[in-house]
Computed example of a mutant assay.
Amino acid sequence: MHLRSRTRRSTLAAVSAVSALAVTLAGCSGTTKDSAAKDSTGSVAKASANPDAALKKDLKLAFLPKQINNPYEKIVDEAGIEAAKEFGGTGKEVGPSDASASSQVSYINTLIQQRQDAILIAANDPNAVCTPLKTAMKQDIKVVAYDSDTAKDCRQLFINQASSEEIGRSQVRNIAEQLGHKGEIAILSATQNATNQNTWIEFMKDELKKPEYKDMKLVKVAYGDDDDQKSFQETQGLLKAYPNLKGIISPTTVGIAAAARYISSSSYKGKVVVKGLGTPNQMRKYVKDGTVEQFALWNPKDLGYLGAYAAAALASGQITGTEGEKFKAGRLGEYTIGKDGEIILGPPTVFDKSNIDQFDF
């Protein structure tokens, strides 16, 4: 009994000594990039914004697209990398060769180890990338989603190309006008989990419920996985499976180019309408040969440029991602953060024979 009592006293003394040492060490340590302040829930506490703060020099920005060989995202990322040079920072593009849901995770983990100041990501899946992105934010690495969003609590900002609702509804309005509001249509999307694609498609479906579209029918949503050959094959499959198909909406630059390529050299040319989102350089030949009457897109160079400045403003403390905060994005001027950290680039441009040669991207 006496021995157990002495052992217990010794143990309590040792615990007290360790606790005292821990308090002393904690009192000597500062908040570093690896030990960002946490709030009562364990999340990273949001600092106050200082709109008058200067952009920091030597910021390191990393762009992580859906896939590294996507022509559209290459334009976005290269523009962002060039923008970083304007404020004395550096940028780079890294990413997977496929657009699967989890393919971006290992790249995020590497960027965290490299101590990037900001990660800009076009998410293949809204949730698959969340765990490593939350780890990044806890280490004071800023996270900006662009083009395709993550779950809202996995980033500080989302740079949206245009109003998601307007993109979705306008696609239906435009194809309906060309079809006389009659006929079967299909959608050729990117991947099944792409946040932006799914959001636009939901607005398309909702638009189609209106009385003016009662003679139109959405027969299929197909997925080309942002792969040129698969999108080409999916187009062929749609046309064979639905012989009365009158139109295809492809809200992805890879998909619309592949669909137009297939139709341009087939008996469906002039009979099946192709609409969607594409770049002028991809679509110029199909507009000029009559395969595609018109399509739409925002300027991807501006999207990358805005993303870089937003990330720099975050990393410099000018903004925190709170609704109503403002910051300047170089030549694009001032932007205001909207609900849930969303920043909208602006309305898309409609391209047709009359204006397509005015653009080079």
Rank of each mutant, 00 (worst) to 15 (best):
N124W: 00
K269N: 10
K246P: 04
Q192N: 03
K142C: 01
D147Q: 02
T253R: 12
K240M: 02
T41E: 13
N196S: 11
D147N: 09
A101Q: 14
G341F: 08
V292Q: 04
K74R: 14
N174W: 05
M283R: 07
N70K: 03
A136N: 03
P280F: 14
M137V: 00
A118G: 09
K33A: 09
A311C: 13
N281R: 06
N281E: 03
A84Y: 06
I81A: 11
L120S: 01
A22E: 09
D228V: 03
G27A: 12
A118T: 04
V144D: 02
T41F: 15
K57E: 08
A17W: 06
K217F: 06
T349C: 06
A14Y: 00
S267C: 06
H181Y: 15
Q113K: 00
K138G: 02
G290A: 09
A312L: 12
Q294M: 14
T32E: 15
A49F: 09
A315N: 05
E342F: 11
W298C: 10
A296S: 05
P71M: 08
K138W: 07
V44E: 11
F295S: 13
A37T: 10
P251H: 13
D340G: 06
D34M: 05
C28T: 11
K328M: 14
G255Q: 01
V219C: 03
